[in-house]
């Protein structure tokens, strides 16, 4: 529990603290559930499943309001020492029910997230990295082609390959960083919008995410400068004599 009581009676409800925050509600406020006013008596913590938050209500009242068939799961609070006994008794009395312990339930929820959503996110991130490398690569490549002759001049006057790679890498890093800052500002803006138009997603920012995006940007710069660097390596400095 974050605040208040965790044992809602009839006409009472416990909401996740994120729901409270998103909806601008406070303990003691009243909300309607199926046309029935419920007073918020508690705020629970860590009861968010990705983008949905659990709410806790009185079982007897809910059964009366919604009818018995509309309940697909319920939670029981038991003495931790009694967990196995209670489970065996329920399974014996109601073979049609599946009983999960708190740990199993948490693991199932985590599995829903990691099996269903993480792979999609991973694919999105991978696509984003590839697109990022391509865009930075194209920017640097076209800048290289445009300055083809000037690289030839630098070579002719005695610049080493390393000097030229440094120029390419510098351009690549500058364009990645511009992308990084635009992306960072954009994501903060989108998060603000999400909050503003009250989509129920809890967006968490942490320095860690920005740091990893930053490292990814550097990594992408290095990859993106590979082809332009090879192109420069092939420039024949004799072009400087062409009028």
């Amino acid at each position: 529990m974050a605040e208040g009581r965790g044992d809602p009676g009839p006409g009472e409800i416990v909401l996740d603290e994120v729901s409270l925050q998103i909806n601008g509600l406070h303990l003691g406020d009243n909300i309607d559930i199926d046309g029935q006013p419920h007073q918020i008596v508690g705020a629970s913590k860590d009861t968010t499943l990705l983008v949905a938050q659990y709410a806790f209500v009185d079982i007897a009242e809910t059964r009366r309001l919604l009818g018995p068939d509309r309940i697909n799961f319920l939670m029981l609070k038991v003495d931790p020492a009694m967990t196995e006994t209670v489970r065996q008794q329920i399974e014996a009395a109601h073979p049609e029910l599946i009983v999960y312990t708190r740990e199993e339930f948490a693991r199932n929820n985590a599995a829903v997230i990691s099996n269903g959503i993480l792979p999609i996110l991973a694919v999105i991130v991978a696509i984003a990295v590839v697109i990022g490398v391509i865009i930075v690569g194209l920017v640097v490549y076209s800048a290289t082609v445009e300055k083809y002759r000037e690289y030839g001049v630098l070579k002719a006057v005695g610049a080493g390959s390393f000097d030229l790679y440094k120029i390419v890498l510098e351009q690549s890093i500058i364009s990645s960083f511009l992308g990084f800052f635009a992306g960072a500002i954009g994501s903060i803006g989108v998060a603000w919008l999400i909050h503003k138009i009250e989509i129920q997603i809890n967006v968490v920012f942490s320095l860690k995410y920005f740091a990893s995006a930053f490292v990814a940007a550097i990594f992408m710069s290095v990859i993106a400068s590979y082809i332009p660097a090879r192109k420069i390596n092939k420039i024949d400095p004799v072009i400087v004599f062409k009028a």
């Binding site: 070579k155 002719a156 005695g158 610049a159 080493g160 390959s161």
Partner: peptide, 8 residues
């Protein structure tokens, strides 16, 4: 590399 160094 040695030649470009010399050119420089």
């Amino acid at each position: 590399r040695g030649i470009s160094e010399l050119r420089l």
